[in-house]
Write a protein that binds this DNA or RNA. Structure first.
Lengths: 247, 247
DNA sequence: GTATTATTGTCTCAAAATGGGAAAATAATA
DNA sequence: TATTATTTTCCCATTTTGAGACAATAATAC
């Protein structure tokens, strides 16, 4: 079979990455009232993975995570949070790259540093869905958004990594007010509420939600948004504090 | 100068540890109304470090952390929580082992894998102070408890690791009810309150604290504790749910 | 015994936060 | 001008929390 993936330099670790250590980021987006994650399809397979990469020997892990995200999304300023490090000894033994990939130089790959045991530092990123330009990496041929409730088969323990990232996101939603990073600059109250309901997984009451949000004094009310619908036009808001900030 | 430290096998990584990756644990204890951490004194120096170690190639990170803790404390069942991974590229460049140690085989050490850049997975452990048997490791000549408010000079970024661990502990104190792991099997309400006040760093009201704790229905009231003091004897309680559990 | 002292445990009321229903406001359409 | 579908505001009952006061009690002093 023809080799389609360019692993030049990777197999020999020419970039001098820290061996046995990887970074994987769960990239969350919000679109049409659904919480989405950006995934990469492993080349010529039906198996998907998180956006991941490695840490250069002279590079901090946060900058490494941001570099990887920049490459996958085209975005410069991204809300990023480290949430857990995954290091079960068997974690890379299910749906291994070697199992999935079949591109001729298998033997070379099997013996390379890439096919060894990895400990992976998990980050999650919150992005404005509409601004992302999904871009595959050397190991993948496609990047696409998936509804969190309808995930495809995933490599390694990446499914578990997503589940745990969502847990962290839920826990931080109220305390750190991170939700705003999933929305565009301006948004309506119903949009914000839908975001909260989607992330948390249960419905909230309009009146009390609005009272709570306005009571925190973190929103600035802009003008009204006339959508053309035959009903009262909602106000547009923007988040007072500068979005982003973390890592 | 005479070599006092036994680094046999370490310099050549005979145990086949994952390179560039370490584990460090902040071991919390509670004694005489003070929050303590167990530290190790780097051999022949005034610099102290957390309990740390490395991960074997065929070992999960949680078991590795538990193994290290077992060796330092003599305890078998320990409440352990992974809270953050530290990977700044310069983190091991302050107060390096090579800077501190001066035991003859310096050159050999400087070139060894031990003196390279490390990413460290941070755990914190909650233990019953009175049950711990502090034991130094190959790099240290002494193990001792320190009040969190009176820490000695520390190696690398270990001071920062402690600060961040305390943050996590505070955040988990109420939600996960982890505090009980710092107390003996049975305890009085004032003891429990003092623990909370010490961890959180601010005073609480007796009446409301008791109402809250009893209201959660997690405490079992045992008999009274007669201390010999000229006042009402407090009740003893024990935590209903089995302590420990995490990792 | 009885009073005293130092704590611990309980009670109560006010204030604040939350849950939940209903009414008012309003943008387009009929 | 009435109607419809939302958004926004208002209000009240309930729960939770804050804070002071009081009751209980174990040893000691007298």
């Amino acid at each position: 079979m023809e080799r389609k993936i360019d692993l030049n330099g990777f197999l020999e670790n020419k970039q001098n990455f820290i061996p046995h250590l990887s970074i994987d980021s769960v990239i969350f987006g919000f679109h049409q009232d659904q919480l989405k994650v950006l995934l990469l399809r492993v080349h010529d397979s039906g198996v998907w993975s998180l956006s991941g990469g490695f840490v250069r020997m002279d590079e901090g892990i946060d900058p490494a995570a941001l570099r990887i995200l920049r490459e996958r999304t085209g975005l410069e300023n991204i809300y990023l949070e480290q949430y857990h490090t995954f290091g079960h000894e068997e974690r890379s033994k299910n749906n291994t790259l070697a199992d999935i990939l079949d591109f001729g130089h298998t033997e070379e790959f099997r013996n390379s540093w890439l096919n060894k045991r990895f400990v992976s530092i998990g980050y999650y990123a919150l992005v404005d869905f509409s601004k992302v330009n999904p871009t595959p990496d050397s190991f993948s041929d496609k990047a696409a958004w998936f509804d969190l409730k309808d995930l495809p088969p995933m490599i390694f323990d990446h499914r578990e990594m997503i589940d745990k990232a969502l847990e962290s996101l839920r826990a931080n939603l109220d305390t750190k007010l991170v939700g705003f990073n999933l929305l565009p600059e301006t948004f309506t109250m119903p949009e914000l509420q839908s975001l909260y309901e989607t992330v948390l997984g249960y419905p909230l009451r309009r009146n009390n939600f609005q009272r709570k949000m306005l009571g925190m004094d973190i929103l600035e009310r802009i003008e009204k948004l006339y959508t053309g619908a035959a009903n009262k036009a909602p106000y547009l808001y923007k988040f007072k504090a500068p979005s982003i900030e973390a890592v």
